[in-house]
Computed example of a mutant assay.
Amino acid sequence: MTLVRYQNQFPGLLDRLFNSDFDSFNRSNFSNTNTTLPSVNIKEDVDSFFVEVAAPGFEKSDFNIEVNNDLLTISSEKKTTNTPKDNERVSRQEFSYQSFKRSFTLPELVDDEKISAKYENGILSVSIPKKEEAKPKPVKLIEIK
């Protein structure tokens, strides 16, 4: 497994387990605002890898998921404005702007044509299936003659 999480710090133990690329760990994870990046869980089973992004308050349409040269990028941009109604006097108006971008290097053993995603209850779930040749083969018993 070589899903790699890039961050603005030296790679931690989890990154080393996922075969981190030391040359580019500062490239692709950033927030355009002073907010924190959403937390991410990476899971694996026999058939797939799963990336879960905690992003409550967003809508499906706020996300952009791209695969480019084995780099999976999840990004979002959300603007909220409070527009005054007719005959309203605004003494203070606050705007909300949230954006983030997270990138992960996909291992060669994934089928990037079959990646799927869903957003439910504040969690964006991305399913990344493995190629057939990457799946473990069943144990084969050899008969002794």
Rank of each mutant, 00 (worst) to 15 (best):
R27T: 08
I74E: 03
K130E: 00
S31H: 11
Q93N: 06
N82W: 15
I128L: 07
S91R: 12
N8P: 09
Q93P: 01
F100I: 03
S20C: 02
Q7H: 12
S61R: 11
K135Q: 12
S75V: 08
K114G: 06
E44K: 10
P11G: 02
D45T: 10
K78Y: 00
S96N: 14
I42K: 15
K145A: 10
L14R: 13
S103P: 02
E59I: 10
T35R: 09
P56T: 05
F30S: 02
S39Q: 14
T80A: 14
N34W: 14
F63N: 01
F22T: 05
F63D: 00
N19F: 08
P84H: 10
E133G: 07
Q9F: 10
F100R: 09
N87C: 05
L14I: 08
E52W: 04
V139C: 04
R92H: 13
N82D: 11
E132S: 14
E77D: 13
I74G: 00
S125Y: 03
D111S: 06
T80Q: 13
T36M: 05
F22R: 08
P84Q: 05
K114V: 15
S20E: 00
F95Q: 15
N34T: 09
F50R: 14
F22N: 07
D23N: 09
F58P: 02
P107H: 01
R27A: 13
P107S: 06
Y6K: 01
F95C: 05
Q98T: 15
N121G: 11
T2R: 08
V40S: 01
D23R: 09
L13T: 03
S28I: 06
S103I: 01
R16E: 04
L106H: 05
E132L: 14
K135G: 11
P138F: 08
K43R: 09
F30L: 12
I74M: 03
T105Q: 07
D23I: 14
D21I: 03
L17M: 11
P38S: 03
D21C: 03
L72I: 08
N29Q: 06
P84I: 03
N8R: 11
S39N: 15
R102E: 03
L124F: 01
N41I: 04
V40I: 12
T36N: 08
A134H: 07
R102F: 02
P138N: 05
R89M: 08
S28Q: 07
I144H: 15
N69F: 02
K130C: 00
